[in-house]
Amino acid sequence: MIQRLANPARFNRLAGRTMPWLAWGAALCIGAALWLALAVSPADYQQGEAVRIMYVHVPAAWMALVAYAFVALASAGGLVWKHPLAHVAAQAAAPVGAAFTFLCLVTGSLWGKPMWGTWWVWDARLTSVLVLFFLYLGFIALTAAFDEPQRGERAAAILALVGVVNVPVIKFSVDWWNTLHQPASVMKMSGPAIHPSMLWPLLLMALGFTLYFGAVVLVRMKALLLARRARAMAMAQVHRAAPAAAEPGSAHG
């Protein structure tokens, strides 16, 4: 199936068909999750209403990791199996992943203020997500650092593979660092065992975010492919104009 997608025309048709489903699916799931999260699910006996922040924060954290795994997998697909659409998928997904990571960080801070009185809590998970955010920025910055897009894509792909190997090491060392300097007062971020009425909005929001991710990545992939085509046509015109200048058949161009 993957190889069949290789031809952009076929990809465009397939993307065109699945996109509405993803977009509407995302809207429905997020809508339902919002209604459950804000109106139906009970307040937490300890945190009170503030627990509702969790319904955005936790799915965003989950998406930050899923998106990075997607970028790394697509990069491997591009580098190892030379699949022509793989780098395009990685390029399309990175900004979306970075957006979810940013959302996770800010909502983590919004949750930290009422709970522990400070805007930034050096909690192990939040710190790891912060480092992940810089891995995303590195990927996006490296892509844009070259004049030739193909060059930037392949370099960023290698960085994504190096990054994905390092994420567990970073996570382990940050957790370890956190237990080392564990101030007694900091309550673990995950809160009490998840009550079913709280689990449903969480899962629905996560599903909604995933469908949203799929839809936006497809849109960005189509845009990237068209941008690549426009660039190739512009370059072709530049080179096609050249022979007209030199008289035909002259050896010394």
Partner: peptide, 19 residues
């Protein structure tokens, strides 16, 4: 929002703005 409105609503507004 049990006087946590100042933190819960910005969360959802920010999520909406970003997405």
């Amino acid at each position: 929002m049990g006087n946590y409105g100042g933190y819960v609503w910005p969360t959802y507004i920010l999520a909406a703005v970003i997405l």
